[in-house]
């Protein structure tokens, strides 16, 4: 057997060229992820089209797509979508920054943890919807109250993730920093922060997910624009296709934003050694 034969045999056994394998892996992942929702839509469409279901309260995919198309044609969809995205983005940024800072302070400084953590944990237990009347009284019914509510929703998982992961950083790697006489700031920058990055990414993803949930509650607070407004409008005018269309857009936006966050943070956690990577 020549070297070329050996190389092609190796390639065959490993499943082909690496680039091809990656593309196939991505495509098969996408197809697998779409299998359940697409099958569900198809079944529902067939049931409604064949007269087994009325589709009055749960409209079939064709009517949802039609509603989306009409909303897009009038420019309403883009308008509401941008309004919602801006609110989530602002609330997420504010909540995440506050969560990282306060989580960092309570995770790193024990006296700060003793002072702040019990109060923050008590506040975390309050149903977030309970803040709505207070925020309206404090900030009015416009953007500030909505963004604040989203920020509160994002804050707690990020705070908890950062604080808890800092407390549980392996003593052994902290001792490496101590042996090399790192200052407090260097210890945070060179050891603690990289060590908690995987947990931080997970808590940011959780926070972002909650951001999308809270924007609906926020947009129920007398909003005149946003996907939440479309939901209220659809309910008041008896347009279930508009309601489901808005829900579908929320699902797509939530998935896309989560995917984007994972993609942006992937290089920061590529060093992790886990069994899933080995199975790829």
């Amino acid at each position: 057997m020549t070297a070329a034969d050996l190389s092609s045999e190796k390639q065959r056994l490993s499943g082909g060229k690496p680039g091809y394998r990656l593309r196939w892996s991505a495509l098969s992942g996408l197809l697998t992820a779409l299998l359940l929702p697409v099958s569900g839509f198809l079944v529902w469409q067939i049931l409604v089209s064949s007269g087994f279901a009325s589709g009055r309260l749960v409209p079939p995919p064709s009517r949802i797509l039609s509603a989306l198309w009409q909303l897009q044609q009038t420019g309403e969809l883009s308008h509401h979508l941008v309004a919602t995205c801006l609110r989530v983005l602002s609330g997420f940024a504010a909540g995440a920054v506050a969560g990282i800072i306060l989580g960092g302070v309570t995770g790193y400084f024990r006296p700060a943890r003793r002072l702040l953590d019990p109060t923050l944990q008590a506040l975390r237990a309050i149903p977030s919807i309970a803040w709505v009347p207070l925020f309206i009284l404090w900030f009015g019914i416009f953007e500030t109250s909505k963004v604040t509510l989203i920020a509160v929703g994002v804050f707690f998982p990020v705070y908890l993730g950062v604080s808890a992961s800092l407390v549980s950083v392996d003593r052994k790697i902290v001792e490496v920093g101590r042996i090399f006489r790192l200052s407090g700031f260097e210890m945070v920058r060179r050891i603690l922060f990289p060590a908690i990055l995987p947990a931080l990414v997970v808590s940011l993803r959780t926070g972002l997910g909650l951001g999308w949930m809270f924007v609906v509650a926020a947009e129920f607070m007398g909003a005149s624009e946003g996907l939440g407004y479309l939901l209220v409008d659809g309910q008041q005018l008896g347009k279930p296709d508009q309601i489901v269309a808005a829900i579908l857009v929320f699902a797509i936006l939530g998935k896309l934003s989560d995917g984007l966050l994972v993609l942006l943070t992937a290089p920061l956690t590529a060093w992790q050694d886990n069994y899933q990577k080995e199975r790829k």
Binding site: I173, V176, R181, A195
Partner: peptide, 18 residues
């Protein structure tokens, strides 16, 4: 406290995985 002229090698390598 840890001293610049002294270094300690632990039982496990304790390399920083990132």
């Amino acid at each position: 406290a840890p001293h610049p002229l002294i270094n300690l090698i632990f039982q496990e390598p304790r390399l920083l995985p990132w």
